[in-house]
């Protein structure tokens, strides 16, 4: 075997800085889609608690639907797949990339294409939504900080859209 394969990101790793906002690409991480009718079964398998309310984040897991969580964990994290149990654990580490939008005007940049009322989408919340016609998972990790999960093929479009919106702030 010759040298190992290198990763390629769909968008630049360089930060984009504009008036009151910074865009950056989060580093690699492990991502899992967790599904179960009974969260207890997953919790027993994983060894930690899952948030029960749609939109809540707890221990790196965002509750996206009544039986769905997106778990984000350090790169390389492996999970038991729970074979035979009434659960579904699917690794989706490379399905999306995470763009970080932060700064006092971060919400304004996202409002350019996201129909959510971001004033009422407070820190600690997460949801699947859209930016214009592109689906995203939006996590508010601080008053002035959002993390946006976007499928990798949409990432170049999405990043350009965010940069355009940030550049138009006056």
């Amino acid at each position: 075997m010759s040298e190992a394969l290198v990763r390629t990101d769909p968008v630049s790793g360089l930060d984009f800085v504009s008036e009151g906002v910074r865009l950056s690409l989060a580093g690699p991480m492990a991502r899992f889609s967790l599904r179960a009718r009974q969260p207890e079964v997953l919790e027993q398998l994983l060894g930690f608690k899952l948030p029960r309310q749609i939109g809540a984040i707890q221990a790196g897991a965002a509750c996206l639907g009544p039986d769905e969580w997106l778990l984000r964990a350090p790169a390389g994290t492996k999970l038991s797949l729970g074979s035979g149990l009434p659960v579904a654990i699917t690794e989706v580490s490379e399905r999306s990339v995470c763009l970080i939008v932060e700064g006092p005007r971060a919400a304004e940049v996202l409002a350019a294409g996201c129909p959510l009322d971001l004033d009422r989408f407070t820190a600690g919340r997460a949801t699947r939504t859209v930016f214009e016609t592109v689906e995203i998972v939006l996590l508010r990790t601080g008053d002035n900080r959002f993390e946006v999960e976007v499928w990798r093929s949409f990432a170049p479009w999405f990043r350009t859209a965010l940069e355009t919106a940030a550049g138009q702030l006056r």
């Binding site: 749609i54 639907g65 129909p115 939504t129 859209v130 016609t133």
Partner: peptide, 23 residues
């Protein structure tokens, strides 16, 4: 191209929240 003005506000009984039609 898919383009439309999304107008309705729809209450999702699972999310228990009113969200824009485009979702």
């Amino acid at each position: 191209p898919q383009w439309r003005i999304e107008m309705l506000l729809i209450h999702c009984p699972y999310c228990d929240e009113a969200r824009a039609e485009i979702e």
